[in-house]
Nucleic acid binder design. Structure first.
Lengths: 128, 128
DNA sequence: CATAACCTTTACGTTAACGTAAAGGTTATA
DNA sequence: TATAACCTTTACGTTAACGTAAAGGTTATG
């Protein structure tokens, strides 16, 4: 029914290796309630969705968010949105995150520009 | 000789208030060797350059860098670049940072796009 | 000149995000 | 069937980045 029928599964070290992290870290995210794999006996079994979730977590980390913030962000998606009362609150939270992210993007661009300047100066220095 | 002759000075709490941080944090950055104010008696006195430096530190934090990384970045600028042997190493480091920053920018843009989608879905939900 | 509102150093406390064993089950394979 | 190569839980350790007193000097002001 689906295209590739994403029913492939992964072991914890499969994911740790693929995404260059550790099994301990992944288990830590689970303790934290960020990812909930199935079990086959005692072993953890990760679905394609679990894998995607881990990618989300790691992307959040790269951006500089804490696990608590990442959880908030993930919850935004899970939220059964449409119940109007809390929806306003939800939207304001989303708006706040958006502003933070835009600020970060600006910060990064500033730094990138400065780095380019620096590189220029250094290579000028070299060719004299 | 200079335009506005930036000789204005600031107390530690001036800066803490202006940039919405704490005096403790600023002193911490000093312990860490990131900022070195003058003294007037026992009191710390911050110059315009010191102020700028603090802004740099805080921007680094917003981007998600650790103090160690921020120190590295700041050192890139202070470096008496042009000595050829270490210059290559310096340039490679800069290049690495650049890649990290670009990755971060991508991550942020991905997240911003997803947030926009989410907002759309929520407001569609509302107007039905 | 007293008292508030600053500032100082010293130092122990806290939280997050794992690292690092330890002690032991499970599964593939030679 | 015996090891290797996985996996499990439990639990204590570590590092970063400050927070939070404590105990006490300094400076502005009514």
């Amino acid at each position: 029914m689906n295209d590739e029928s994403h029913d492939k599964t992964y072991s914890i070290s499969d994911l740790a290796n693929e995404f260059n992290t550790t099994t301990r870290a992944i288990r830590h995210y689970e303790e934290y309630g960020l990812i909930l794999p199935q079990r086959k006996g005692t072993y953890r079994v990760y679905s394609h969705k679990n894998r995607t979730r881990l990618q989300l977590i790691l992307r959040g980390k790269r951006i500089g968010f804490s696990l608590a913030e990442i959880k908030e962000i993930i919850d935004l998606y899970q939220f059964p949105h449409g119940e109007d009362k809390q929806t306003e609150f939800l939207l304001s939270k989303i708006e706040l995150r958006k502003q933070q992210l835009k600020q970060q993007a600006e910060d990064i661009n500033s730094m990138l520009r400065e780095i380019d300047d620096l590189e220029q100066k250094i290579s000028q220095q070299k060719n004299k």
